[in-house]
Amino acid sequence: MTSLIDRYVYTALRRIPEQQRGDIDRELRASIEDAVDARVEAGEERETAVEGTLTELGDPDRLADQYSGRSNVLIGPEFYPAWRRLLTLMLAAVLPIVVIIGVVVQLFDDPDIGKVIGGAVTAILNVGIQMAFWTTAVFVVLERTGAGPGRTGLRLDWTLKDLPRYEPSTVPKTEVAAGVVWPILLTAALLWQHFGLNEVPVLNPANWSFWWPYMIVALVIGAGYQIWLFRRRSYDRTVSVVNAVQQLLFAVPLIWLLASDRFFNPEYHHFADLNGGDVKHWFTVGAIIAVALGTLYDIVKVILRGEQSRRGLPSKVPGTGNYNFG
């Protein structure tokens, strides 16, 4: 029968690297016996002395952690802020993009509302969990291997440059990033639906003679506008005008193509799948409304921002609940 001391020592040694076990085994037993002897000398029964000594030594797993110098945290304070920042970024910025791409693909593939919603929910759950898991896993490995931020070459240290600017006139970074990524995605989708699919393209191939290349150029101009705006750093009347022009460059021809039924491929007949209604018609109307409202909203928003910063009105500081009265 294994004694209580054996059981304690074996349990502790389980979690200690093999090459240290022999030495720690001997030393730990000697220390336990010393303590038991002292208790027996003080008048205790041997059995209670053993129990008392082991209870005092406490949880053997914790003891093992102390021996092997292992931290008993998954992600320590050194990595926690970086982990949280990265995870927030992944879930708040990358996940929506992935889900939107999935929805767009599903819309082209089979625009069934149930499948679209189902696919989006599944993507949010699946991709979200994967992102959380892998981000965490990477940091756990960093924590375990003892690679400090200094040694990994990752810029995890906080510097003054990381402080957000909070200037009311400053162009929001997220909007700029979205403004650059969005044209790239649209262009990719445009090319993919024509060249990537083996089926009939959704959009009218006749437009490749002029309008689709024109749209791609307009999108590139839109991305260039975002970068120009970002480097300019503030809104004013010039920005309002430039923005309106570049928005209309894209939106007006798009609405015209939609309204004059030149947008979709006449050979594409998968619209009528839903309830027998004229889905293509409603899809067209919906797209026209969405493009018109979106463009209008953006033009007005930029004009308002320009006016706000021109008059120096207190504006809401982005990212906080505060107003900037400076």
Binding site: L28, A35, L57, G58, Q66, Y67
Partner: peptide
């Protein structure tokens, strides 16, 4: 180990065996 534990606690240092040995 144990002798040091005794010496320290007699000298008034509050130290547990499970922190001292590691």
């Amino acid at each position: 180990g144990y002798s040091l534990l005794e010496t320290l606690s007699r000298a008034g240092f509050e130290v547990e065996a499970n922190t001292l040995y590691p």
